[in-house]
């Protein structure tokens, strides 16, 4: 590993830390920006008892200058002390831990659907011009236009009520039952993303198919399946990967819609409810987790792209 690679890696990590720092500042200042007495705001909309006021003052050190407050907050988050929810009256960590599993499973399930059907239909549309392409284009226009909540309601009606194939409420027990229960929620979340990824895939693959280096491979008699793997899909993949990072991170946020619609009770529901009740310790923790996830995933995507295409990471130089 050359000195330059190390330097590039360090600057990447620096940018990553800076993003995390800035977002933690924004998330922290949510407390200060809430109108009225921060103690009341921190109490989450309930009338605080004198003991609560003391507890809040102690936890947030409200008599200290703002930067001391910030540092002590960051310090406690980093040491694993995420604070106490004033609405649920329990440690934030105990609220998140049991709910995380089901959301994680839901996101992974959705992701598998997106990759299989989104990338699959995109490739199909690019390779089979004509009817298939038209069908995919119409389907994806529809998919992009349909709000997740509407999809959920339609799915509940068709597969839950009319056909009765899938359960429409609760997460179920055990992994297989979990997956069975998560099918409709995952589909309803995936529809929009499948349409989106399908279109991006189609565009990227079409661009590569008509590129000159693919033409060369064709003249050389390389079998079409091999051309597709080694020249078309490989070269289209950086474009797909660059949207993959943001897609995965945003799935954690929009999971709330499916969780609400299907009564799953994951961290998405926790976040929206905490936000509605101004349960700031919970909102802050979850927001920080989402930002961290977002930043880390994007950094990973950058690394993978740089492995596939080293020139993308190198500053451009003209001879």
């Amino acid at each position: 590993m050359g000195a330059r690679t190390v330097r590039r890696l360090l600057s990447k990590i620096g940018a990553l830390l800076l993003t995390l720092f800035l977002s933690s500042v924004v998330i922290f200042s949510a407390v200060l920006l809430t109108p009225g007495d921060p103690v009341v705001a921190l109490a989450g909309g309930v009338r605080p008892t004198p003991e609560m006021i003391d507890a809040i003052r102690e936890q947030y050190q409200l008599d200290q200058p703002v930067w001391v407050q910030y540092l002590s907050w960051v310090g406690s988050v980093l040491t694993g002390d995420l604070g106490t929810s004033f609405v649920y009256k329990t440690e934030v960590i105990d609220l998140i831990a049991p709910r995380f599993g089901i959301t994680f499973l839901l996101v992974i399930y959705t992701l598998v659907l997106i990759v299989v059907f989104g990338v699959g239909s995109g490739i199909l549309a690019a390779v089979r011009r004509g009817r298939v392409e038209q069908a995919v284009l119409v389907g994806t226009s529809l998919g992009v236009a349909m709000p997740t909540f509407v999809v959920a309601i339609v799915l509940i009606w068709i597969f839950g009520r009319v056909l009765g194939w899938f359960p429409v409420y609760g997460p179920g027990e055990g992994l297989l039952d979990n997956l069975y229960h998560l099918t409709l929620p995952a589909v309803s979340l995936a529809v929009l993303y499948i349409a989106y990824i399908s279109r991006i895939t189609r565009g990227a693959v079409v661009a590569q198919l008509s590129s000159e280096h693919v033409e060369t491979a064709r003249v050389r008699g390389i079998p079409p399946s091999r051309i597709f793997r080694r020249h078309v899909f490989l070269n289209a993949s950086p474009q797909l990967l660059s949207v993959a990072g943001t897609t995965i991170a945003s799935l954690f946020a929009v999971a709330a819609i499916a969780e609400h619609a299907f009564g799953l009770g994951g961290i998405g529901v926790l976040l929206t409810e905490a936000a509605a009740r101004k349960d700031l310790p919970v909102v802050q923790t979850l927001s920080l987790m989402l930002v961290a996830l977002f930043v880390v995933l994007n950094a990973m995507v950058d690394v993978v792209i740089a492995i596939i295409d080293p020139d993308s990471a190198r500053p451009r130089r003209d001879a």
Partner: peptide, 28 residues
Amino acid sequence: GMVFQTPRAHLNPLRTIGDFMIEALVAV
């Protein structure tokens, strides 16, 4: 064999020269 006007566009930028040279020998 065919050779084109713009060699840079006609070679896959993500693959090494070796990959390019060997590919036809192996696949064809």
